[in-house]
Structures are given as C-alpha cells and as structure tokens.
C-alpha cells in the first residue's frame, strides 16, 4: 500500500466533517465553508487514488478533473456568497428562513 490510501482516507474524513458542519450549523457562511471542505475531500480521494500506479507516474485524468472541479467550486462559492449577502441585506441575518431541518 502506498500513501495513496492514507490521503484517500483523509479525503473521506474531510467529506464527512464537511457534511456534519453543513447539517449542524445554521449560519450560511459556515454552510458555504462546509460545502467547500466536502469538495476538497472528494478531490483528495480522486487524486490520491490516482497514485496507485506507483512512484513515477500518476494518472493525469483525475488531475484535470480536479482542476475542473476547483473552478466549479469557486463559481458556486461566489454565487452562494452573493446570495447570502443579498439575503442578509433583506432579512438582517445570514441564516436560512423558516424551520431549519436539513
């Protein structure tokens, strides 16, 4: 076994930590951070397991996919932050309206 699996487990851990924070925190900014951490976790699993071919080369396709993913993530984060600001501007606080049970 290589360090590939070690980082892949860390990635799973990040995914779950992010999921936990997404569920328990009410503040939207924390939820946005949580989604970003979850994303990093997924990317880490994707790239880490590409190392299973050994030391010299690793599979470039996951690398390209993660670069795609990072760009998608920053786009989504920007939209989420803009929405959060607009919502806070109207309601006075950055929490989701109504009952909170997601």
């Amino acid at each position: 076994m290589t360090n590939a699996f070690l980082y892949a487990f860390a990635g799973i851990g990040l995914f779950v930590l992010g999921l936990h924070a997404l569920v328990v925190h009410a503040h939207v900014l924390r939820k946005i951070l949580a989604v970003n951490v979850m994303g990093s976790g997924v990317f880490l699993v994707l790239v880490a397991l590409a190392r299973r071919s050994g030391e010299a080369t690793s599979d470039p396709v996951p690398h390209a996919m993660v670069i795609t993913g990072i760009v998608v993530a920053v786009s989504a984060t920007a939209l989420a932050l803009a929405l959060m600001l607009k919502l806070a501007g109207k309601s006075g606080e950055a929490v989701l309206p109504g009952k909170h049970n997601d």
Partner: peptide, 13 residues
C-alpha cells in the same frame, strides 16, 4: 432569496 439559498446548498450537496 431564501428559497434559492436553500436550493443552492441542497444542489451542491
């Protein structure tokens, strides 16, 4: 805005 925010977080998850 509230609906869209909740929708965005759900769809990202």
């Amino acid at each position: 805005l509230g609906g869209a925010m909740r929708y965005l977080l759900a769809t990202l998850l």
